[in-house]
Structures are given as C-alpha cells and as structure tokens.
Computed example of a mutant assay.
Amino acid sequence: MARIHARRRGTSGSVRPLRTEAPEWSNKDKAEIEKIIVELRKNGMSSAQIGLVLRDKHCVPSVKLATGKRIEQILADNSLASEIPEDLRNLIAKALGMRKHLEENNKDLHNKRQLHLTEAKVRRLGKYYSNTGKMPADWTYKPETAEFLLSK
C-alpha cells in the first residue's frame, strides 16, 4: 500500500506475535491494572504513555490480553476519556506548532507545504471520527480554534 502524500510504497514493519491470552510472567490482575490506568490518567498521561508505563514498569505487555479491554475503553468506563481522540489531538498539536513557526518564518515553503498536508490529515481523520460517532457530527477543524481545543 502506498503512502498518503508521497509517491512511494510503504515500508514493511514487524508484526506482534499472535497471542490469545496473556503470557505467564505478566501481571494478570484486572482490577489492579485498571486502578493503575485510572491513576496514571489522573496524573495527566495520555493513553499511549499509559501503555508504555504499564509495559515497562508493571509487566503488562498487552492491556487487551490482560483485561479484555483496550486502555481507551477502560478510561471511557471510568469517564476519563478525552473529547478528542489522541491521534487527532497529536496531529492538531503538530499543525499548531507549524503555524507558530510560520508566523516567524513566513518564507519557509517546505514547512508551509507540510502544514497543508498535516491539516489535510486532520480533516480526513476528523471526518472519519464524526462519521463513526466518536465525535460530534458537526465537528470541523478550524486553525483559529485549534489552541482552544488542545487546552481542554
């Protein structure tokens, strides 16, 4: 499959081994894992950071295998899920950083092109989330209100 904004093929990557249950050496206590996830979220960590902490410090290679739920599902059950999905939030933050750079360096054409491509990804992803019901149906990306969206 090809890249979105480049005329080249994608690179192959490693695939996680197929497992149907958590390994013997891992932490399998569902209640403890969910408690750790809730605590880490209350400390301000994103779901990706929570997954890394669980893997590195608490011997949980896969939250889904250990608990039967994804991290986002556990956060939603405890009403701690964010309004904007994490991948969309990261793209908006990236576009916001590019806009700040372009205010100081308005002749940076490479950055201007990359900003257009990043905002196209934001719109495409926002449309997907609004069509699947994870975000409001009337949600649209506006660069002027992007900083306000990230402050929530």
Score class of each variant (00 low, 15 high):
Ser14Met: 12
Glu104Tyr: 00
Ala81Tyr: 00
Gln49Ala: 15
Lys121Ala: 13
Leu80Ser: 01
Leu96Glu: 10
Cys59Glu: 14
Phe148Asp: 14
His110Pro: 00
Gln73Lys: 11
Glu34Ala: 05
Gln49Val: 03
Leu109Glu: 15
Lys142Trp: 00
Gly10Lys: 15
Ala6Gly: 04
Gly51Lys: 11
Ala31Ser: 14
Glu72Ser: 12
Pro17Ser: 12
Arg8His: 10
Lys112Trp: 04
Val53Gln: 14
Ala66Lys: 03
Arg8Glu: 15
His5Leu: 07
Ser79Lys: 15
Ala93Lys: 13
Ala93Leu: 11
Pro143His: 05
Leu109Asp: 14
Glu104Ile: 01
Glu34Gln: 13
Gly68Lys: 08
Thr132Phe: 01
Glu147Asp: 09
Asn105Val: 07
Lys42Thr: 04
Ile50Gly: 02
Ala76Glu: 14
Ser79Leu: 07
Leu18Glu: 12
Leu117Gly: 02
Leu109Arg: 13
Gln114Gly: 01
Asn111Phe: 06
Val60His: 06
Pro17Arg: 13
Ala66Phe: 01
Val53His: 10
His116Ser: 14
Thr140Phe: 04
Gln73Cys: 01
Ser130Ala: 15
Asn78Ala: 15
Lys112His: 07
Leu91Gly: 03
Ser130Trp: 05
Ser82His: 07
Ala120Phe: 06
Lys28Gly: 07
Ser79Ala: 12
Arg7Lys: 14
Glu34Gly: 00
Arg19Tyr: 07
Arg99Asn: 00
Arg8Phe: 03
Trp139Asn: 02
Asp29Lys: 05
Lys152Pro: 02
Leu117Tyr: 11
Glu39Arg: 13
Tyr141His: 10
Leu18Met: 08
Ile74Tyr: 01
Lys35Arg: 15
Glu103Leu: 09
Ala137Val: 12
Arg16Asp: 13
Pro85Gln: 12
Ile33Ala: 08
Leu54Asn: 10
Pro61Gln: 13
Leu80Thr: 00
Arg7Ser: 14
Arg9Thr: 10
Ile84Glu: 02
Ala2Phe: 09
Lys28Gln: 15
Glu83Gly: 07
Leu40Gly: 01
Glu24Arg: 11
Asp138Phe: 02
Asp138Met: 05
Thr118Val: 07
Arg89Ala: 09
Pro85Thr: 09
Leu96Pro: 00
Gly10Leu: 15
Met135Cys: 09
Val122Ser: 08
Thr20Val: 06
Asn78Pro: 04
Leu91Lys: 13
Glu104His: 02
Asp56Cys: 05
Tyr129Cys: 09
Gly126Phe: 05
Pro61Arg: 13
Asp138Arg: 06
Leu18Asn: 09
Arg124Val: 05
Gly51Phe: 08
Arg41Ala: 15
Gly10Phe: 06
Arg55Pro: 00
Glu21Leu: 06
Ala95Gln: 08
Ser47His: 07
Asp138Ile: 02
Asp29Gly: 03
Ala137Trp: 06
Gly68His: 05
His116Ile: 10
Arg124His: 11
Leu115Tyr: 04
Pro23Ala: 10
Leu65Lys: 07
Asn105Tyr: 14
Thr11His: 11
Pro136Asp: 10
Ala31Tyr: 03
Ser12Asp: 13
Cys59Asn: 14
Ile4Glu: 14
Ser26Trp: 01
Ile4Val: 12
Leu115Phe: 02
Cys59Gly: 02
Leu125Met: 15
Arg9Gln: 14
Lys152Asn: 13
Leu102Ile: 08
Gly13Trp: 03
Leu75Phe: 02
Lys100Ser: 06
Val38Ala: 03
Val122Tyr: 08
Pro85Leu: 11
Ala76Leu: 11
Thr140Gly: 02
Asp108Arg: 04
His5Trp: 09
Lys30Phe: 05
Ile50Leu: 04
Phe148Trp: 06
Thr145Ile: 03
Ala146Ile: 04
